[in-house]
Design a protein around this nucleic acid. Structure first.
Lengths: 340, 340
DNA sequence: TTGTAGGCGTTATCAC
DNA sequence: GTGATAACGCCTACAA
């Protein structure tokens, strides 16, 4: 049945007190070897399991950590979460996952739910740049609960973060496209009110400037991360008087949409047109024409975020900004056959 | 700071008792309108948040539900989880996710962790068929904690499940391939000690029998769900004296690997060879040659599993087996151009 | 309608 | 070394 044995049951069984049982179970030094052994044995025999809720209530720590992401069903976030779990599970933490679906209200809701659930820390990738009011985010810090941003961060005091060097990723990619002979490089941007997208944009811009290529505003399109938007964006670009000959998309999904549409128009990739994605979604390497992309090391990012959390909760560090290096994966969609 | 306001603080503030505050907060009918209003206002003013741990300790319910899956980073499981969350979140439940990585020990560990964390229910897709000892699974039932299987289930008393009709999916797919003119259909199976894979196999077998096509053991290969295994399996098949002219793969990833290898060998799909996958992973429709597959309605499955859990915990039903209908998505990889 | 008191399962602080 | 007690924050008979 469902009777749960408590330390009181064990105490009664042994004619000792619950306090002693507790001490024995927790390896308290002030306890005789004999009683400890006895307690451990009966605990085992009676199938005792510690009630973590009681422990949590008493200690004020739940051993739960909250993770907030825009969505769970992309390879990137799923892998980051996996990394977080791998880092935290061995330390006895359970991970609670919430999705915002890029909705600011959901984000606020999620934070409240997690605080409500007394999590010991929150690891999140923000969805929207909260307008002026960071109020709900600051509440986390005021409660002295470690907050760690990963990937999509916001610059705040007392908040750690784990990101990749988006600027570098973008700069190098743009340079690579230029090296491939592309001089008219369109750019699919995400919402630039988010730091990662602003950083990526700056990398693109700087690479062009450094190569004396003028910025063409017509080439810069803000999109959402899906196939359809990529297709639509290409239509706009091809309708221009002076269409581009490359696209750097900050979304693999949009890059895929772009490639589909370009092919439909009979444009040859990479000969006539290069395309570069971002995120290294699995499908990018599955295509017949493999899609160049940028790997963000999500597993590593997750593990790192877990480590930063552990450091923080153990007071080893109060703040910590970790920046990982992006990896350019140059595949067919941006590799022109070497001309002899 | 980190001072948390409790109902005692509110009580003191208003010179009433904590019990009254609790009643006011919980909409207990025996309370005057005026005090309730007062309590609600001060609670709000003092930024009171209920401590769910205390509540959980007292009520014995944590409002947490555990979900166990083989892995989180496939579209299928990620989407099921999303469905579960959408069904449970409005009811005030938080979802805790664990991965087994198809490892039986991890599975046992996860169940223990969840029980330990006092979850109110467990929703799981089993990884391995526990040999003879369902011991650790039965512990869940003995504790009177609702257990719901989704997708990968095991027939057990008192355990609900939400699955798709794998037999039908498989039967219809095989029939479809036969209708396309394929008479030598190879089959990539998963571990048949799991019910879903056994059901799928039976569907395949029966369809062949019903069409008077003999079963060829050489055509039946057990694989793991990844690209490499698909490639390797095709090599074996093509080395046969009498190679097949179609593959039904119970994994989209293996189907992809198969297609890659077939193309490398210059075999034309679907003209010379048809391929059908299972799971409707996003990439199947992204390919230049779109891959036929079976949609398992993961979102719906998750929502359904959530509903079954809610029914169970509210004692509306003690057991419930829900079977969803699979959807065949017939795409290019199995559609022969109609011959005139 | 409100107050009192006890308990959910632990552990820390005193005592002895 | 071990026992008694209080406290974590909440809810709910029971009493008033």
């Amino acid at each position: 049945m469902s009777e749960k044995t408590t330390i009181y049951d064990i105490a009664k069984e042994l004619n000792i007190t619950a306090a002693t049982v507790s001490r024995a179970l927790n390896n308290n030094p002030k306890i005789s070897h004999s009683t400890r052994k006895l307690v451990l044995e009966t605990a085992n025999r009676m199938n005792y399991k510690q009630n973590r809720l009681a422990l949590a209530l008493r200690s004020g720590k739940s051993n739960n950590v909250g993770v907030i992401v825009p969505r769970i069903n992309t390879n990137f976030f799923a892998s980051v979460i996996r990394g977080i779990e791998e880092g935290l599970h061995p330390e006895g933490y359970q991970v609670i996952i919430c999705q915002t679906h890029e909705d600011e209200n959901r984000e606020i809701e999620n934070i409240n739910t997690l605080l409500n659930a007394q999590v010991d820390g929150i690891l999140m990738s923000i969805s929207n740049l909260p307008k002026e009011n960071n109020h709900y985010i600051e509440r986390v810090i005021q409660k002295n609960i470690p907050l760690i941003f990963f990937d999509r961060k916001k610059e705040m005091e007392n908040v750690s973060s784990v990101t990749i060097d988006d600027y570098q990723a973008s700069y190098q990619t743009t340079q690579h496209l230029i090296n491939q002979g592309c001089d008219k490089i369109a750019y699919f941007s995400g919402d630039r009110s988010l730091e990662i997208y602003e950083d990526r944009y700056r990398g693109y811009e700087q690479a062009l400037l450094d190569n004396n290529i003028p910025i063409n505003e017509d080439y810069i399109i803000t999109i959402k991360s899906n196939v359809t938007e990529g297709r639509d964006a290409v239509e706009k670009l091809l309708a221009l008087e002076n269409p581009p000959n490359a696209i750097f998309s900050t979304s693999d999904f949009a890059a895929l949409g772009a490639i589909q549409k370009l092919k439909e128009r009979g444009i040859k990739i990479p000969e006539d047109f290069c395309v570069f994605g971002f995120g290294n979604e699995p499908f990018t390497k599955f295509m017949e024409l493999t899609i160049s992309s940028i790997d963000q090391s999500p597993l590593e990012m997750g593990k790192m975020a877990a480590q930063v959390f552990l450091d923080k909760i153990n007071n080893r560090k109060s703040e910590n900004k970790v920046v990982l290096l992006p990896k350019l994966l140059i595949r067919q969609s941006s590799t022109r056959i070497p001309q002899v």
